[in-house]
Structure formats: structure tokens, C-alpha cells
Simulated scan of single mutants.
Amino acid sequence: MDRLFFLLTAIGIPLSIIGNFLHFPALILFIIYCLTIIGLASYIGRATESLAIISGPSIGGLLNATFGNAVELIISFFALQEGLVNVVMASLTGSIIGNLLLVGGLSILFGGFKYKRQQFNIHDAAHNAGIMVFSLIVSFVFPAVFAAKMDVHSIKFLSTVISCIMILIYLFSLVFRLVTHRGVYKMQQDNISVILEEEHPEWGKGRSMLILAVTTVVVALISERLVGTIEPVGEQLGWSELFIGIIIVAIVGNAAEHASAVLMAVKNRIDIAVEISVGSTLQIAMFVAPVLVLISWGFQTFMPLVFPVTELIAMALAAILTISITADGDTNWFEGAMLLAAYVIMGFGFFLL
């Protein structure tokens, strides 16, 4: 898998430069940019994990919170800059249903093909389920319920207050897991090497920082170009901004992490696969979305925490289905198939919208 990400990066970066210089068609550039970002995301994740192991659990938790969804944040930043608020909100929705249904479904399905039953800690599942319900209700459902009776300024104020509180609660959750209750609940891990290498960093501190800095800059440059191709590609293929955000952008921003989860499940570490699926969802709801709300104050178009009803229902159904399947701490391939079926159905629904 690492070789694949290397090839995507090594081939994608030169093609991105050449394609931009020679003005390749928007669709070709869109594909090149997406594949290149997927490859670069792998290096951001590996560099972050190496620094997290070197720095220790407390600093490592903050690094994972900051860079765990760095690609998603970078793409969304440039989309907000271009005023594509609908694309950003759709990508947040897509990340949540993608993490829960697509990643969770693929992990359980492929793991279930190799092992008839895979089990994980039921107490961890219950703990994560409680945080997930809280984060989705407070971050997304609550603002939508009250927005109908508020003016624009009140919605902005409410969204900002909720965002600040959710970021604070997310930092509290890191302190809870990594300091006050470390060892009581297993620390979330987002990379295979932490488990297989017994927490030996893949790269040293200096190399990790250099790779992280360079890769982040390159991702930012390519993401800016990617955002510029969204509208022409949508017009050419007849895809709505909603579909592009929920399916395409969401998958591109989380592809490397998705691959890690599936590989963990195949190695009979379904507990880590579930942690990646649910943990990334919590990051989106409690950290990424609130940060984007605060960032949007610097642009002409503000991004409120008010999602359309269809997207709210999709996120709620994804959370309910995931909780119902993982509540017993036991999975099999058929449960993975159900999660994937739900994702495909939702994907078709958003495509037809």
C-alpha cells in the first residue's frame, strides 16, 4: 500500500505541474489532483504518527487532532475562499457518512471474509457511541432546529459559540483519554505502524517535520487548483456540488486513512479499524467543522453550522446504524455488507438530487 501511495505522489506531482502549465482539460486535472492528494495524505498521516510517538501521548494527541484531517481542512479552506460553502458542508457530511458506512463497512466486510467473527472492546464502543451522539446533536442538529426562528446575525453568533465550545470539549476529550484516564480507555490510533511496530516511529523527528511541512505546502497548492476545477467538472459531468462534496471530495480527503482501517481489519485488528472509523468522525464533528466555521469569518461567505435536512438525516442514520452494529462488540461480514449498502443507497440519493 505504501508503494501505491508513493507512485501516486511521484507521478501525480509532475503531472499536476505539467497539466496546469499546458492547460489540460478540467476533468483530467481534477482526476490528477485527486489522486495526487490521496498519495500526499498518506505521507502527512505517517509523519504525524511518527511525531506523535516521539513527542509522547499528550503532545501526540494534539498533533493527531491538528493533522488527523489536515487534507480535509486544506481543501475546505480553499473552497471557503472561493465561496463554495455548499461543497464544504457537503464534504463534511460525506466524511462522516463515509467514515461510518464506507470505511466501517469495508473494514468489517473484508475482515469478516477472513475471520467469521471479529470482536473488540464493548466498553470502548459504548464510550465512543456516547460521544458521537453528543457531537452530532450539539454540532449539527441543535443549530438546524433553532435556525428557522433566528436571523442571520443570531445564526452566526450561535454557530460561533457552539464551535468554540465543541473545540474545547474535543481538547477535554484528549486530556480525558491521554492523561486522566490513560489506560482505562484505549488511545485512538490512526496508523498501522503504531500497532505493528510497537510504537517505534517510522521516521526521526527532523525527517518527520520536514516531510510534514513540505507535504502540507504541496497539498495546499494542489488543493487550490483542485477547488478551481470543481465547478467546470460539475457542469461537464452533470454532477451537483452536493454530490461532488459528499462523495468525491470526502473520499479524496480521507482515502489514506480509509486504507489503513481496512488493512487493520484484515489483520484481525477490528478494534483499531473501528477506532479509526469512529475517531475520524468525532474529529470532523468536534474539531474540523468548528474550525472551519471560525475560519469562515475571514471570508466573504460565512459557513454556519446549519446543514440541510437531507444531510442531517444521512448523518443521523449513519450514526444510528453504526452504533446498532458495533454495540455488541462483535462483527461479521454481513454487517459490513449492510453498512456498505446504506452508503451506496445514500450515494445514489445525493446523486439524483
Rank of each mutant, 00 (worst) to 15 (best):
M1P: 04
D2Y: 04
R3N: 09
F5H: 03
F6L: 11
L8E: 13
T9S: 14
P14T: 03
L15F: 13
L15R: 00
G19Y: 08
N20C: 03
L22S: 09
P25D: 12
L29T: 08
I31M: 13
C34A: 15
I37D: 07
I38V: 15
I38F: 12
I38M: 15
L40A: 10
Y43F: 15
G45Y: 02
G45N: 10
R46Q: 11
A47P: 05
T48Q: 06
E49D: 14
S50H: 08
A52E: 07
A52W: 06
G56H: 02
S58G: 05
G61R: 03
F67C: 08
A70R: 03
F78R: 01
G83I: 11
L84P: 04
L92W: 09
S95P: 06
N99H: 04
L100P: 00
I108G: 00
F110G: 01
F113G: 00
F113W: 11
Y115L: 08
Y115W: 12
F120P: 03
F120S: 02
D124L: 15
D124Y: 14
A126G: 07
I131Q: 13
I131K: 12
F134I: 15
S135L: 15
V138F: 15
V138K: 08
P143D: 07
A144D: 04
A147G: 03
M150I: 15
V152L: 13
V161K: 06
I162R: 04
S163G: 15
F172E: 09
F176Q: 08
L178R: 09
V179M: 07
V179I: 14
H181K: 14
R182L: 12
G183N: 09
Y185P: 08
M187W: 04
D190H: 11
D190Y: 15
I192S: 02
I192A: 03
S193E: 10
V194M: 12
I195F: 09
I195V: 13
L196N: 07
E198P: 01
E199P: 02
P201Y: 10
E202R: 07
G206R: 04
I211S: 02
L212H: 03
A213E: 03
L221R: 00
L226M: 14
V227W: 03
V233H: 01
G234E: 04
Q236K: 00
L237Q: 06
G238V: 05
S240P: 05
G253F: 11
H258G: 02
H258D: 01
S260R: 01
K267D: 13
K267R: 11
N268P: 01
I272M: 10
V274D: 04
E275P: 06
V278L: 10
T281Q: 04
M286E: 09
V288W: 02
A289N: 07
I295V: 14
G298P: 08
L305S: 04
F307W: 10
P308A: 06
V309G: 01
V309I: 14
M315N: 09
I320C: 12
T322I: 13
I323P: 10
S324L: 15
D328W: 09
D330N: 14
T331L: 09
E335M: 12
G336P: 07
L340W: 05
L340R: 01
V344C: 01
I345H: 00
M346L: 09
L352G: 00
